[in-house]
Lab assay of single mutants.
Amino acid sequence: ELVLALYDYQEKSPREVTMKKGDILTLLNSTNKDWWKVEVNDRQGFVPASYVKKLD
């Protein structure tokens, strides 16, 4: 499943990933309501769920 980055996000820990507004990311896990695991540029990590939106 793919998600769209709604905002820029700068990683604050090694478990997170940086994304730019408009990026298309692969959603790996959305079981946590606050932090979703995504893959971007061959890196996996977490981003705030409120910063991304699922693409239909």
Rank of each mutant, 00 (worst) to 15 (best):
Q44Y: 07
Y9H: 04
L27D: 01
V17D: 00
Y51P: 02
D56A: 13
D34E: 13
V3A: 12
L2E: 06
L4P: 00
P48W: 02
W35Y: 07
Q44W: 08
A49N: 03
D56S: 13
S50R: 14
D42V: 07
L55P: 05
L2G: 03
Q44L: 07
T26V: 15
L25W: 03
L25Y: 10
T31M: 09
E16M: 05
N32R: 10
L27Y: 02
T18N: 07
F46R: 03
L55G: 04
G45D: 02
T18L: 03
D56E: 14
Y7R: 15
N41K: 14
V38K: 01
D42G: 15
E1P: 12
Y51D: 03
M19Q: 02
T26L: 15
Y9D: 00
V38C: 05
T18F: 05
L6I: 11
A5N: 00
F46W: 15
E11R: 12
V40T: 15
V38E: 01
P14F: 09
K33A: 13
V47M: 01
K20T: 10
N41A: 14
S30L: 05
G22F: 05
D8Y: 04
Y7Q: 11
V17M: 11
T18D: 04
L4V: 15
L2S: 08
S50D: 09
Y9P: 00
R43A: 06
D42T: 09
K12E: 08
W36N: 01
E39V: 12
K21G: 05
I24F: 06
L27A: 02
F46S: 03
D56Y: 11
E1T: 14
V47S: 00
D8S: 09
V47H: 01
S13R: 08
L6D: 01
Y9W: 12
V47E: 01
I24H: 05
E16W: 03
I24E: 03
P48V: 02
Q10W: 13
D23S: 08
G22D: 06
W35G: 02
L4W: 07
P14N: 11
V40C: 10
S30D: 15
T26N: 10
D42C: 13
V40G: 14
K54R: 14
N32W: 07
T18M: 04
S30P: 07
S13L: 10
E11C: 11
W36G: 01
L27W: 01
Q44H: 09
D34M: 13
N29Q: 11
Y7S: 09
L25T: 01
P48Q: 02
D42A: 10
N29C: 10
V40D: 10
N29W: 07
D42H: 13
D42R: 11
N32S: 10
S30K: 08
N41D: 14
D42K: 12
K37W: 15
L4H: 04
E39I: 12
I24L: 09
G45M: 06
K20W: 10
V52W: 02
K12W: 04
P14L: 10
G45E: 02
E1G: 14
A5D: 01
W35H: 03
V52D: 02
T31C: 12
A5S: 05
L4G: 03
T18Y: 04
M19E: 01
K21P: 03
L25H: 04
D42N: 15
K53L: 13
P48H: 04
S50K: 14
D23V: 05
P14H: 11
K33M: 11
V3T: 03
K33C: 09
Q44F: 07
K33N: 12
V40S: 15
K33S: 12
T18Q: 04
D42L: 11
Y7T: 07
D23W: 12
G45F: 08
K53A: 13
T26P: 15
K21Q: 11
R43Y: 05
A49Q: 06
R43E: 05
E39T: 09
D23F: 05
V17W: 06
Q10S: 12
V38H: 00
F46P: 00
Y7N: 09
Q44E: 11
R43F: 06
N32E: 11
E11A: 15
A49W: 02
R15L: 14
S13N: 13
E39Y: 08
L55Q: 06
K20M: 10
Y9A: 00
Y7W: 11
N32K: 07
K33G: 10
D8Q: 04
V47K: 00
D56K: 11
V17S: 02
K33P: 14
D56T: 13
I24P: 02
S30G: 14
P48K: 04
K21I: 06
E39M: 13
D34S: 11
D23E: 13
S50V: 09
E11I: 06
K12M: 11
D34V: 14
V47W: 00
V52H: 00
A5F: 01
Q10M: 13
E39G: 10
L27K: 02
N32H: 12
S30W: 09
W36L: 05
D8N: 08
V47F: 00
E1F: 13
K21W: 03
F46G: 01
D8E: 05
K37L: 15
Q44T: 11
L55A: 05
T26S: 11
S30Y: 07
K53V: 15
K33W: 08
E39A: 13
S13I: 04
G22E: 03
K21L: 04
Y51G: 06
L25F: 07
P48Y: 02
E11T: 08
E39W: 09
Y51A: 10
Y9R: 02
V3P: 00
L2F: 15
V3M: 07
K37N: 07
V3N: 01
L6F: 03
L2M: 12
I24M: 07
Y9S: 01
L28F: 04
Q10A: 13
W35R: 03
L25N: 00
E16D: 05
R15D: 12
D8C: 04
K12S: 12
E1R: 14
W36I: 05
K20H: 11
L4D: 00
V3E: 02
Q10P: 06
K21E: 08
L2A: 08
V52Q: 00
